[in-house]
Structure formats: structure tokens, C-alpha cells
Design a protein around this nucleic acid. Structure first.
Length: 467
RNA sequence: GGGCCUGUGGGGUAGCCUGGUCUAUCCUUUGGGAUUUGGGAUCCUGAGACCCCAGUUCAAAUCUGGGCAGGCCCA
């Protein structure tokens, strides 16, 4: 129904037809979350908020504008962003004395304030996060929800700690949170430490989460940074230690963006449209009554009864009462990825059952009326599990492991990697060695080194084309 | 960063080369009505478009320049 061969085309068609995101706003890289898309976003963020708050994070909200001097304070950091900052230069007709940046990210804004908040070790740790829009003046191709000029959803967490060890543990916690988050969404990920040349500007090191899209390109969907004392030194985040001395705080930050929404769509979707994990589906169950003349009222009544039952269970349920043919409704809701559809018709009433259709496997089966409650709950679990498993398998097919020895000539490695990238797409894993782990190799194979990762107990360099 | 291409109702298109026949084609969408309903029904009747600015010309959807927006290829 929708061509899966051309991912790019499939993706834009889904966004439009499933009413997730409207790309037609007249500014490059800026679009609109439509109600349906917005709900997916909200339920996704609900999960993330829950996971963060369970582990002691608190939500805050910082201003969009950052004065130039503040943004420029950390040398390495600003270098990483200066070419892509949007500037507010005027107030009305008057030029501003200090230009104001639309935040490309909020480290500098937040750390300026942290200085006011931190005096002694008892003020630590601080674990805060916010969900905001950020801006990057992208010159390359923008892509809806993947490469935006206005990133509408950026969940950024920032922490400050009394010791390096604590910060290190915080990095681990963040990784755990994100792992759990992606697990909930059924999005398979690879976790790797980014190479020096590709880490977050100003960070000591960066750990990144990547998944692989159906076209075989890798995409970064989460990052965790250990900032050490880089920022705390420039922002003078000094505190009195337990022993009465002075030290600068140790910081971490980690972020998730709109790309998660793009991933939910891309990773699980099929030729019929979206397939949504139940936790983030705006409508979890849709009831389609089959209205034959003469038997209309009975069916409608039973549908309403069922609706009330599910509603009481806290399920997001709707009845589709539109006066169009059932087939049309089926396609409509399948396109939108509704996980479960329940059909009720005269035949079902006779047999005291309902007909259930699950979106992920496209199976249809009957359930006795009295078993519906239990069935739906366990079905949600089965759907989650199945989607996760299927996505994992799909990604595995895009992971190619190559085996080289220390004396394999570099040219041969390059040749093999290029060949495999071309034929198999996805990512190529090369046994770790220093001569391979260099920017030089990226140029030779015309792809990026995502980093170093553990895979099936061995250490590999991960290479792939990225978004 | 360099190169190529495109812009017509909400979406997809025909027309553009060779200006006039355009009151702009077809599919989809959409309002109203009839009929139908276990996988995209049908009929009747309405609605809806030449990206923006300037230029050439008696005349521009069509030609020229610029802007904006989008797509593709190479680094």
C-alpha cells in the first residue's frame, strides 16, 4: 500500500497521511505537530518523565534566549555550535547591545544559574531536566523530525555532583534510563562511546545511542555526556567540600529529541502505515460496529457497553461510528497504527464473542465476551514484546561483523568495509585496533565511525552511514 | 561546500518545450443528499489551484531575472 522500498518517500507519506506532522510551514526545517502526532509525542514524553523522576530528576524551565557573552564563555563548546546559532539582533528597530542567541542547547544558561544555587556539598547533587525547543541553523538537508532547524522536543537533563565518581555513576544511571526508555518503545539500540573528534563540544566524553532505520542508515537518538569539570571551571561552579576544602562540581548532561518520535514511526511502521506500541498510541483500541439495517441498534448498544468497559480500565478507546463502509475504517485505523481493533457485528452477538484484530501481526480472532478484559491487557503485553523482538531482528540484519587480524593491510580493510557498506548497508563492526580507529578511516570508507562498542563479548569499531 | 532539478485545488498530476484554444485535465480529498455496510461501494449535486516579486509582450501557468520553498547527486 505504501511503498516501503523507498524509505524517504514512505516516511514523508506516513507523516502526512497519519496526520502526525505537517511539513508545509514556509520555513525550512520547521513544521507542525498535528494533534495525532502531538499525542504520540506526549505519551512518549510521559514515559521519559516517569523514568527520570523515579530516579530523582526534577523538571524545570529555562528561557529560550541566551546572551552572547554567556553562550561564548566556554571556548570549546561555542566552537562546536557557532556556525549554527540563530541570533536575535534587534528589539523592534533598535539593534541590541548584546545579541541574544536562540538556545542551540542550554548548558550555558543552566550553568550560569547553577553558580547561584551551589555553595556547599549539601547543595549537591543537582539533577534537573527540561523539555524545550532548541534551534540550529542547519544548512544541509533538513528532514521532518530528524534534522530540524527548530528542534521542538529536546529533553535535556543536567546534573552536578561533588565527585568525579558520582558523575561517573550518573552517566551510568542515565544510560540505564535511556536503555529502559528505548526498551519500553521497542526501539533497538547500540550504545557506543563516540570518538574524540565527534564528542559533544566541551565534554570529556560522549556515550551515544544509535538505531538503524529501514534504509540501513544509522541514526543517533540519544546522548549522554560526562562534562567533568570543563564547564564548572569556566562557570566557576565552586563549592565547599565535606572536608572543608574547595572544588569545582562534576557535571553530566544527556538528551533525547524529536528523533525518538521519528524512530517509533520508522522502526515499527510497515506498508500499511504506522504500527504504534500501545503505551504511546493515542488510541489503543478502536471499536468498529458493523451496522446492518435492522440490527443497527443492538450492535450499537453492545459497542457502547464495550466502550464503557474499556474506558473504565483506563484504556484509550474510541468507537468509529462514521457512516462509511467498514473496510474503509479498517484501513483508516491501520494507517494510524492503532494497536487493537475490535469488531462487533450481528454474527458476533449471536456467538457471544467479539472479533479482535491486532495491528502488529495482522491476526484476527474471536474472544468470548467475558474474557475481553483479561485478553486486552495480556494482548498489549504480547504486542509490545512482539514489536520489540521484530525490531531487534530487523536491526540485527543490518549489523555486519568483519574479522581482520593485526596484519591485514589497511587497504584491504578499507576495501572490505566499503564493499560491505554498499552491499549490506547498516553498520559494519571491525575488531578494535588503534590504526582503524581514526578520522582518516572515515574519509577512506566515506562513512562515520560511531564509536567503540561491545558486541557479543568483543570490542569493535562501529562504522556506518548516518543521518 | 559544489552541481543538477522542481514549484498548478488539501495530496498526486495533465498542460509549459512552441505565449492566445485555460472558463486549467484526470485521480484523490471535501460539503449536502440517496443508497449501502464482516476489507478502500455506487449515484446525484456542490467546493477547491497556476509559490512570491519584478521584467519582456497587445497577451504569461507557459519566456527572463531575483527571492522563498522543496527534491536529487557529489565532497
Amino acid at each position: 500500500m505504501i511503498n516501503l522500498e523507498n524509505f524517504s518517500e514512505w516516511y514523508s507519506e506516513i507523516l502526512e497521511r497519519a496526520e502526525i506532522y505537517d511539513v508545509r510551514y514556509p520555513i525550512k526545517g520547521c513544521g507542525i505537530y498535528l494533534p495525532y502526532g502531538f499525542k504520540i509525542r506526549r505519551y512518549t514524553l510521559d514515559i521519559l518523565r516517569r523514568l527520570l523522576e523515579e530516579r530523582g530528576h526534577e523538571e524545570v524551565l529555562f528561557p529560550l534566549l541566551i546572551p552572547e557573552d554567556l553562550l561564548a564563555k566556554e571556548g570549546e563548546h561555542i566552537k562546536g555550535f557557532e556556525d549554527e546559532v540563530f541570533w536575535v539582533t534587534h528589539g523592534g528597530k533598535k539593534p541590541l547591545e548584546v545579541k541574544l542567541a536562540l538556545r542551540p542547547t542550554s548548558e550555558t544558561a543552566i550553568y550560569y544559574m547553577m553558580k547561584l544555587w551551589i555553595k556547599v556539598h549539601k547543595d549537591l547533587p543537582i539533577k534537573i531536566y527540561q523539555v524545550v525547543n532548541t534551534f540550529r541553523y542547519e544548512t544541509k538537508h533538513t528532514r521532518p523530525l530528524i534534522r530540524l532547524r527548530e528542534i521542538m522536543t529536546f529533553k535535556e537533563a543536567h546534573t552536578a555532583h561533588a565527585t568525579g565518581e558520582e558523575a561517573e555513576n550518573q552517566v551510568k544511571e542515565a544510560i540505564e534510563i535511556y536503555k529502559e526508555f528505548f526498551h519500553e518503545l521497542g526501539i533497538p539500540v547500540m550504545v557506543s562511546r563516540r570518538p574524540e573528534w565527534d564528542k559533544f563540544p566541551g565534554a570529556q566524553y560522549t556515550v551515544a545511542f544509535d538505531t538503524i532505520f529501514p534504509d540501513g542508515r544509522a541514526i543517533q537518538i540519544g546522548t549522554v555526556h560526562n562534562l567533568g569539570q570543563n564547564f564548572s571551571r569556566t562557570f566557576d561552579l565552586e563549592f565547599e567540600t565535606l572536608e572543608g576544602g574547595k572544588d569545582y562540581v562534576y557535571q553530566t548532561c544527556y538528551g533525547i529529541s524529536d528523533r525518538v518520535i521519528a524512530s517509533i514511526i520508522a522502526i515499527h511502521g510497515d506498508e500499511k502505515g504506522l504500527v504504534l506500541p500501545p503505551q504511546v498510541a493515542p488510541i489503543q483500541v478502536v471499536i468498529v460496529p458493523l451496522l446492518y439495517k435492522g440490527k443497527r441498534e443492538v450492535v450499537e448498544e453492545k459497542a457502547l457497553e464495550l466502550y464503557k468497559l474499556l474506558k473504565e480500565m483506563g484504556i484509550r478507546v474510541e468507537i468509529d461510528n462514521r457512516d462509511i463502509r467498514p473496510g474503509r475504517k479498517f484501513y483508516h485505523w491501520e494507517l494510524r497504527g492503532v494497536p487493537v481493533r475490535i469488531e462487533i457485528g450481528p454474527k458476533d452477538l449471536e456467538n457471544k464473542v467479539v472479533t479482535i484484530y491486532r495491528r502488529d501481526t495482522e491476526e484476527k480472532y474471536q474472544v468470548r465476551k467475558e474474557d475481553i478484559k483479561e485478553e486486552i491487557l495480556s494482548l498489549f503485553e504480547r504486542i509490545k514484546e512482539n514489536m520489540r523482538e521484530r525490531a531487534r531482528e530487523r536491526m540485527e540484519r543490518y549489523i555486519t561483523t568483519l574479522d581482520f587480524s593485526e596484519d591485514t593491510p589497511l587497504e584491504e580493510i578499507v576495501k572490505e568495509v566499503r564493499k560491505n557498506l554498499k552491499e549490506r548497508k547498516g553498520v559494519i563492526l571491525i575488531p578494535y585496533s588503534e590504526r582503524v580507529y581514526s578520522e582518516d578511516l572515515e574519509e577512506k570508507v566515506e562513512a562515520s565511525i560511531l564509536g567503540v562498542t561491545e558486541y557479543k563479548g568483543k570490542k569493535y569499531v562501529v562504522v556506518g552511514r548516518t543521518y
